[in-house]
Nucleic acid binder design. Sequence first.
DNA 1: GGGGAATATTCCTGTAAAGGAATATTTGGA
DNA 2: TCCAAATATTCCTTTACAGGAATATTCCCC
Lengths: 114, 114
Amino acid sequence: MSGMNPDMDMATLSALAEPNRMKIVELLRDGPLTVGEIADQLGLRQPQASKHLKVLSDNGIVDVKAEANRRFYKLRPEPFRALDTWVKSFQRVMEERFDNLEDYLRELQDKEND
Amino acid sequence: MSGMNPDMDMATLSALAEPNRMKIVELLRDGPLTVGEIADQLGLRQPQASKHLKVLSDNGIVDVKAEANRRFYKLRPEPFRALDTWVKSFQRVMEERFDNLEDYLRELQDKEND
DNA sequence: GGGGAATATTCCTGTAAAGGAATATTTGGA
DNA sequence: TCCAAATATTCCTTTACAGGAATATTCCCC
């Protein structure tokens, strides 16, 4: 059995489950950007961009590198690897045919004498 | 280039980014359960369980099948497949070595005459 | 058809979090 | 040492949403 499933960090999901932060993540996919560049491309005001980046940073989704008075933000690989691992643990679910819910329930009914 | 990346449905992430709903999803991993069973196993009151299941259902994460006066909830494969596809689109990020941020920035600096 | 499970819905309240605006901080350069 | 650009932080207000408690609904069974 060895039924040890990876558990997903809720904070990662929460951080990603916000439209502007998701857009930031999509932007950073192609490489590091500064706060100003991010704010520009997304039509955000600088403070909001900074705030969202702080959330992403606090949750380990993003990495900062100071360069002069600019800060380059960059995606970290770990949270995506973790998400990948977690989703893969649902492989059985993903492979499942769609129309056999009834079969499943029939099985369950048999086991209902406990 | 063909740079068409899959975009992730925010609603799916929002639905999963709540502790009790995540626990429900983990529970359902092994097969369908009724509202009562879910509430029991998680120590939730029935109404809260129903409410969370409604959110999961509204977002296509879960499927319902009425059987007598009970309702069996079951994971749907689609959202997990979508999540899998999305995460895979970050393969470049996931593969990235950790310590070459400086190199990356050096590259960027060269391109900074536009 | 009435009663009792099992489940859904409604109303209320508290709280966390996002946006706006203003301000603080840091840093390099003259 | 002072200025300006880039970024972070604070305060305020509004809104979405989770939990609690009560109630409505649905459905089988006698």
